[in-house]
Computed example of a mutant assay.
Amino acid sequence: MKSDQQRLKEILSSPQRSAEDEQWLQSYLESTDATELRELAADIFQDHLQQDKRLSPDTSTRMWDKIRQQVDITATPVLRPYRKYRWMAAAVLVLAALTYPLLRKSQPKPFLAAASTIKPGGNKAVLTLANGAKVLLTDTGNQVIKAGNLAIQQKQGKLEYEGEAHEANAFNELTTPRGGTFQVSFPDGSRVWLNAASSIKYPLKFEGNRTVILTGQAYFEIAPDPGHPFIVKVGEMEVRVLGTSFDIMAYKDEQVVNTTLVNGAVKVLQGNTSATLHPGQQSTLNPANGKMEIAIANLENVLAWRNGKFELENTGLPTFLRQLSRWYDIEIAVEAPAEEVAAKKFGGQIGRDMDLHDVIKILDLYGVACKLENRKLTVLSVHS
């Protein structure tokens, strides 16, 4: 007997479906676990991308009508009950598996310049030593970097510091380019993951407070040491911790600085404003006016980059374009009307290991027409 997953994949992959198949599919969509459904639908979607399969327009239209009967996709997702909100994301991805070939047939294809395949980012960075020397770090690198009595081990995408420097005021700086990520482990056991286009400057010897300086985005796992608080400086803002895991997003092209606590406790300070976060909370600071707000965080969304994903649930197009720019090291241009770009929202989740061409196909599915020339991605039009 076929499993439910086998039957679902066969139904969605077939250009012909009976009334019984569609009735079964309707029931399955309403009752299955959304996480399981999203993963399976994403696999099927990838099969369609690679095999260029086509489905009957009226069949896909009927499925779309059934999905809309169950979920009002124009509503604000955060106002919905949790289960139905997750079901909506699953339904949209199933729709992607159903209708992507149809959209490719009925709409103009996104323009892709010849020989312009752009691969996703990977583990790469530059380490600036205390004497100003720069060491290029690559995904496959395995080396020992000597810095006085310190031994810095590079193991692929990770740096590990062994020992402690004797000289005071000696700093290293780890910088990731656009399209790069890297991890660093300090002698005290703390670990930091740097996202693309980011940097962290840190002393080779922690004296008193353990203070580092961040630009861009990083995820921290801090080793407990009550006598030596860990401090992250981001411009005029400070995040003080004892032992905890948290994420800071502080790119210069973003309007706010987000600090998200996974576990433990942190205190966020900016001038006379301060707030103590509890696990699952996020502070949003507007550097322009110093205003800070606290809210419940979507941890899956915040940590998606560290887990190799673009989390698109309720993500706006401008935000997603900035993420693409940093990860694929591309220039973004927008010719579509600004109000349509600002209003566009997404759902679901895709891997950061996809070629840019496949991401453009997904944008096309969501009604965002683009063209790619060399390393410049232009948004031509946006449709609901």
Rank of each mutant, 00 (worst) to 15 (best):
G316M: 06
A125C: 03
D353R: 00
F310N: 00
C370L: 02
P110S: 03
I330V: 13
P318V: 05
K291V: 15
N149H: 09
G348Y: 04
K201Q: 14
I152M: 10
S106Y: 10
G189D: 08
S245C: 08
L95I: 09
V234L: 10
K155L: 10
Q323A: 11
D329M: 01
P101I: 05
D58T: 13
L93Q: 07
N258H: 10
S31A: 15
P337C: 05
K134A: 08
A19P: 06
K309G: 00
T319I: 14
P229A: 06
H166G: 15
D52F: 10
E300C: 02
V382C: 01
P81T: 06
A96T: 05
T244I: 05
I294S: 04
G157L: 12
T378L: 01
H383I: 04
Q156C: 08
V368K: 02
I231S: 07
S116L: 03
K252R: 12
D47A: 08
A130C: 06
L261V: 04
I296W: 05
R352E: 00
P203N: 07
Q107N: 12
Q23E: 14
G264D: 05
G227W: 06
A250K: 10
A125W: 02
T74C: 09
A151L: 11
V232P: 03
A297Y: 07
L324P: 03
W87K: 15
T315F: 01
L194V: 09
Y251S: 08
V257M: 09
N374R: 12
D225S: 14
I11Y: 09
T211P: 04
Y219M: 00
Q107I: 04
A90F: 02
A130N: 10
A75E: 12
N195A: 11
V262T: 08
L79S: 13
L112M: 10
D353F: 00
I118Y: 00
Y161L: 14
I44W: 01
W327S: 00
L174D: 06
C370K: 04
V71I: 15
R104M: 15
F320A: 03
T61R: 14
R240V: 08
A75S: 14
R210I: 06
E164W: 12
S274H: 09
I145E: 07
D21H: 02
A75H: 08
V334L: 05
Q50F: 08
A369C: 00
I44M: 01
H357Y: 09
I11G: 07
G157E: 11
Q70A: 15
E22G: 03
N272G: 13
V78Q: 13
P203W: 04
F246K: 10
L40N: 02
A297I: 06
A170Y: 12
R104W: 14
F111R: 06
T140I: 03
L55P: 01
S31E: 15
A295V: 03
I11A: 11
N131V: 03
Y85T: 11
F310V: 00
E10Y: 10
A275K: 04
E311H: 12
A333N: 11
I67P: 06
T181Y: 02
Q46T: 11
T61H: 11
G132R: 07
Q270V: 04
D355T: 04
I330C: 07
G348I: 06
R326D: 02
E207D: 12
R178N: 09
W87N: 14
P337F: 05
S190L: 11
W24V: 03
G351H: 00
